[in-house]
């Protein structure tokens, strides 16, 4: 066992491009994001916002036709992951950084029992004591409310969606990784199963002293478990700060619009408003100026030409020209 410590992560000026017939288009354009050690950070964004690309970059696992063009991803104890390659990189993945893939049902081998896959994982990382590994796995599964022995003897089709998701979390943690990335951990799960998985993520995070990153499109999921929240749009982090502050007093017009677009269980339902327009794709991303301006209620002349740089005040970071000009956030502004 390695000593337990939760690493901090600093992503700086990260640009990831995808090769398309129209040339190399940026999926991430100079993203900066800091994960404080021992915290749960959430990244929310719509499809095409670059959130999954950012998560893959933490493992330096962006696949062609994509590539990391510039920037760095520094993880405490590992250095700049972008510079790692070959065997060094393989050792980092799984052992230092655990990754729970989107749609856990598709990331398990249907032909092998969970136990066999666990042993494969152990061998590929040269674990000397495989029996101890199995013991750890059983303990972890038990901790998550499953019968460890039974699950290890099962094939994936014998497990429910919620159980597979827990197996995914177990495989990410069993090598004692202290940085864990969960990509859409609850998509396709039921409400009640989702609540269970989120509680497990939180409990395990605290018990094992992890740094956790959760990627989701569901504001509710992020609100439920995270300490700090980053909102992504069009390949940029447009707002980042403590979760309760970002939700309670959003500053970026996109965050404000997104929160207003969630139908809620109490209060006046007609206060919910759809955001006009639609999110940009790689091809329709504006080359200059703010990527959100087409849908923005606060659009100004400067937005057409200058991409707003993230400005940090205290614990909060916002990338918007309009913020800072105004005294209070325009929460009551009507959307067309």
């Amino acid at each position: 066992m390695t000593e337990s410590f939760a690493p901090g992560v600093r992503v700086r000026d990260l640009t990831v491009v995808y090769k398309t017939p129209a040339g190399e288009l940026p999926a991430l354009a100079g993203v900066g994001l800091t994960l404080a050690p021992g915290t749960i950070t959430g990244i929310v964004g719509e499809s095409g916002s670059g959130k999954s690309t950012l998560a893959l970059s933490l493992l330096n696992a962006v696949q062609p036709p994509g590539r990391i063009k510039e920037g760095s991803v520094e993880i405490d104890g590992l250095g700049d992951v972008v510079k790692l390659d070959g065997e060094d990189l393989r050792q980092v993945r799984g052992r230092k950084v655990g990754y729970v893939f989107q749609a856990a049902q598709n990331s398990l081998n249907p032909l092998k029992t969970v136990g066999k896959q666990l042993l494969d994982l152990g061998r590929s990382h040269d674990v000397a004591d495989l029996q101890a590994l199995v013991r750890d796995a059983r303990e972890l599964l038990g901790r998550m409310g499953l019968d460890g022995a039974r699950v290890l003897d099962s094939h994936q089709h014998e497990l429910s969606g919620g159980m597979r998701q827990r197996v995914g979390i177990m495989l990410a943690l069993v090598l004692n990784a202290h940085l864990v990335v969960l990509d859409e951990p609850t998509t396709a799960l039921d409400m009640i199963t989702q609540a269970t998985i989120l509680r497990i993520v939180r409990d395990v995070h605290h018990e094992r002293g992890l740094t956790t990153l959760i990627i989701t499109h569901d504001m509710g999921v992020a609100a439920e478990v995270t300490d700090s929240l980053a909102v992504m749009y069009g390949g940029r982090v447009v707002e980042h700060g403590p979760t309760t502050e970002v939700l309670g007093a959003p500053q970026h017009p996109y965050t404000q619009g997104l929160i207003r677009a969630i139908p809620r269980l109490s209060g006046d339902i007609d206060e919910a408003r759809a955001l006009p327009g639609r999110p940009p794709t790689l091809g329709t991303m504006p080359r200059e100026g703010c990527v959100f301006r087409e849908r923005c209620p606060l659009r100004m002349d400067v937005c057409d030409t200058v991409d707003p740089a993230p400005v940090t005040r205290g614990e909060r970071t916002v990338a918007c020209h309009a913020v800072g000009h105004q005294v209070s956030p325009p929460r009551r502004k009507e959307y067309a």
Partner: peptide, 26 residues
């Protein structure tokens, strides 16, 4: 139980006082 499982938008909402949780999985 179904309504209790709905995520709470912390910072905007607080959880209901009598949330119900199923004693076991389905």
């Amino acid at each position: 139980a179904l309504l209790s499982a709905i995520p709470v938008l912390r910072g905007v909402e607080r959880p209901g006082a009598e949330r119900v949780e199923p004693t076991e999985a389905l």
